[in-house]
Design a protein around this nucleic acid. Structure first.
Lengths: 231, 231
DNA sequence: CCTACCTATTAGGTATACCTAAATCGTTGA
DNA sequence: TCAACGATTTAGGTATACCTAATAGGTAGG
């Protein structure tokens, strides 16, 4: 429909490809496959190939791409991806803190607006928020210079040994699950006791000092990242 | 570039056409010519014809259009146009009041964001601002129901008789001129004495109780709307 | 009344970002 | 090794929203 012609090679779509490659590549920035991108972006694999070829062929390529071997971000691509992530997370924080959005609604709005705000907007909301380092889901907000610490946490779903943990962050993409988490008092920074996986079928946890065990759904367990609690 | 496919017939472009037709049609909602639209939207006349045909041919037409006879908004089109104007003016107000934007920068940002904010965003910034009726340029903000009072003022450039007036509103589209106005203390609500046009070449005014006459450029005079001061 | 001129429309083309269907590449198990 | 399968790419098509150039419509002056 639209045709915003941002003269350069940027666009909403390109932004989303770059973000997806950043996320799927992980901290090691391994190559990402077309299929993985196709799934994440909900787009046909053929469309992925097309876009990647274009991004790689540009004068200032945003990705490194070789047929049948996946993609990774170029340094320009990584810069832009981090900028978009910064926008996203600042906007989420702003919606939550200043506009009192329910936590589960910030992602969708940010997902749209992240592509269209100006430098000035970015700077002003950052200032208003006191230059936050973490968004309401516990994710690091990249700096203006494009730096972002590693998220040193693991998915609750992948933890086998039991123990006491602190909730590091939660995935923001699925509003339904996020709302469930919220409803059960599962929020960033909360303490949680986890039963060893061997002892139980699903994921059984106690939130805070609650005596009542809570059974997490697969989605919930997959969307929570935790770190061991310091004694 | 982008391709936001908002399933229905809405899009950034469509929004802009509707807004332009609303504005150019004036309060009488007279038919607007292709040429006028082409100029306002800075698009080739042929493109206008194309778009108008599509808008008129839709299942739920947004405009009434007859070849060679201009367009006017359908009631659905008017509703959408007013919604976009509401977004625009609320965003401007928000940027100015909450994010401390310089007055001359709010328009451009609002012009982009107006197309992408959700109902919730609209509602939240309106609430935050105390449901304002007027934006920082003095323009009425359409209500949620799509009502907007007439701007009962005239362009300073079109006033011949001299006298004392109050600045009702200023045009927001030209940042350069707006900045000049601001720099000269010309702001909404300010009182102003205007010399009769016969007595002078250009537009000579005294702002507030200033004794120093100020000569307005053509652009400045065209961008200011005034009402007679009540005694 | 009828032509000249300006306005508006049609015709045909571009770029982005998708799609489906039909190749082809690569790796893996027999 | 090599065939088969799944992953990937190529080929060809759609829709939006633009563009330029060529045609047609309307109107105003002679």
């Amino acid at each position: 429909m639209s045709d915003r012609r941002r003269t350069n090679g940027n666009s909403e779509s390109v932004d989303n490809y770059l973000k997806a490659i950043l996320t799927l590549g992980g901290p090691a920035e391994t190559r990402v496959t077309s299929t993985a991108l196709a799934e994440r972006l909900e787009v046909a694999p053929a469309s992925i190939t097309n876009m990647l070829q274009k991004l790689a062929a540009a004068e200032k390529p945003l990705v490194e791409y070789e047929r049948h071997r996946g993609v990774r971000l170029s340094s320009a691509g990584k810069k832009r991806a981090l900028e978009v992530v910064r926008h996203h997370r600042l906007i989420e924080t702003f919606l939550y803190e200043v506009l009192d959005y329910p936590i589960e609604e910030v992602h969708e709005e940010a997902e749209r607006l992240e592509h269209f705000i100006s430098e000035r907007f970015e700077e002003r909301i950052a200032a208003k928020l006191g230059h936050p380092k973490i968004d309401p889901h516990g994710h690091f907000i990249p700096t203006m210079e494009g730096h972002m610490p590693l998220q040193a946490s693991v998915k609750l779903a992948e933890v086998v040994e039991g123990g006491t943990f602190v909730i590091d962050s939660v995935d923001d993409r699925d509003a339904r699950t996020l709302k469930q988490l919220e409803a059960n008092g599962i929020k960033v920074g909360a303490k949680l006791r986890l039963k060893p996986r061997t002892a139980t079928e699903g994921y059984s946890v106690n939130i805070g000092r609650s005596a009542k065990a809570l059974d997490l759904s697969r989605e919930m367990a997959g969307d929570i990242r935790i770190v061991p609690a310091q004694k």
